[in-house]
Computed example of a mutant assay.
Amino acid sequence: MNGQRTAMSDGIDVMVSKKEAIAEGVMHFEFRPASGERLPAFTAGSHIDIALPNGAIRQYSLCNAPQECDRYEIAVLLEPNGRGGSRSAHGDLKQGDEVRISAPRNHFALVPARHSILIAGGIGVTPLLSMAEQLTRSGASFKMHYCTRSVARTAFAQRIGVSAFASRVHFHHDDGDAGQRFDVRQVLNEPARDTHLYVCGPGGFMDHVIQAAQAAGWAEECIHFEYFAGAPADTSHDRAFEVMLAQTGCVVSVAADKTVVQALAAQGIDVPVSCEQGVCGTCVMRVLEGEPDHRDVYFSDAERAANDQFTPCCSRAKSYRLVIDF
């Protein structure tokens, strides 16, 4: 919890100005500044951290148009078997409440391109909505494919239907007609260096789309994605290792059942953390020596192969010792 407080110490106080159910299991929230001033500017693909009533800090993508700095909008899917963040948002967060958020951060930014393809799975539509707004405003070429289990679980359908980009969006529902089903190979059958792909949604859905893109010959630098949660890691073979802080020479042992963040905290060394799943990048540290065991979804394959950074909230070490710059 010390790390969580550190991560939000410079936060922004906002008021919940709107809360409404917009699809089965999906709650839409609007936040406005408690001070009456404008909120920090953001770009499409950005997310914010939110300190929820149950004490958890979670990340949610902004889904409104980037030029709208009088408010931020997010949507939260209820995850009954999650870690409690979505339950607190749905059940505890009320219209009129004041909450603390972080300034927007963007690890999923748009890249200038001749054409863009946006593929959303379920609640993964949130950052892509903001991208669609920005691309439309700039007059850029794009198509969007929005995949859900059913019409009832399709958040923002009404908003998309009356938007300036409605004609560019194709809806695909699992329970719809066969002709409406999402054919990923057909959508991605023409890779080009000046076309960029953006994917967001559940992990299995994203893996399917990314693997299809790679099989079709898409270049890695043209595939952009953002995971909402890290995949559960196999911890059955975890072993103890050491981390050494390069600046002080302090050596800390990390037990097999503890994370680096937990081990450092036990020695009075607080690391700013937020998601604790290797998603947000808040805790990233530089690695000077040793080989990390990467368990994040934050870094690209090329960044992991460089072995010069890691996420201490979830990643471990393949070598006996990691020397870190912190």
Rank of each mutant, 00 (worst) to 15 (best):
E303C: 04
H237Y: 05
D301N: 06
D296V: 12
V252D: 11
A306I: 02
C275N: 10
M244Q: 03
R295L: 02
A240Q: 12
T259K: 04
L245E: 09
G278S: 07
V287I: 05
I269L: 04
V261I: 11
A263F: 10
A266S: 14
S236C: 09
D238G: 06
A246Y: 00
F299Q: 15
H237G: 10
V251F: 05
D270K: 07
V279D: 13
T259V: 12
G249I: 02
A256S: 12
A233H: 13
H237K: 13
G249L: 01
R304E: 12
G278V: 08
A231K: 06
A231I: 13
C250Y: 03
F241P: 02
D301W: 02
H237D: 15
R295K: 06
D238C: 09
Q277A: 15
R286G: 01
E289Q: 00
V261G: 09
V260Q: 01
R286C: 01
D301I: 08
G268V: 14
G281D: 08
L288V: 00
H294S: 03
A255I: 01
C283M: 12
V287E: 01
K258Q: 11
A256P: 11
T282G: 06
K258H: 10
L264N: 08
T282V: 15
S236T: 15
A305V: 06
E242M: 05
D270T: 13
T248M: 09
Q267V: 05
V251S: 04
R286W: 00
I269W: 01
D257T: 05
E276P: 01
L288I: 00
P232T: 14
D293V: 08
A255Q: 14
L288Y: 00
C283R: 08
D296E: 04
A231P: 06
K258N: 15
G249D: 09
A246C: 05
R304I: 09
E291G: 00
A231W: 03
D234S: 10
Q247G: 05
D270V: 10
D293R: 11
D270S: 15
V251Y: 03
V284H: 03
A256K: 13
G278W: 03
V260C: 04
E289M: 01
S300C: 09
E303K: 08
P272S: 05
A263C: 09
V284C: 08
G281Y: 03
D301A: 12
C250I: 12
V273L: 06
G281L: 11
G281Q: 09
D234G: 14
L288C: 00
E291H: 04
D293L: 02
M285N: 05
A302S: 07
R239Y: 11
M244Y: 00
M285H: 11
G268Y: 10
D270Y: 06
T248Q: 11
A306K: 12
E289D: 03
E303M: 08
L288S: 00
E303I: 08
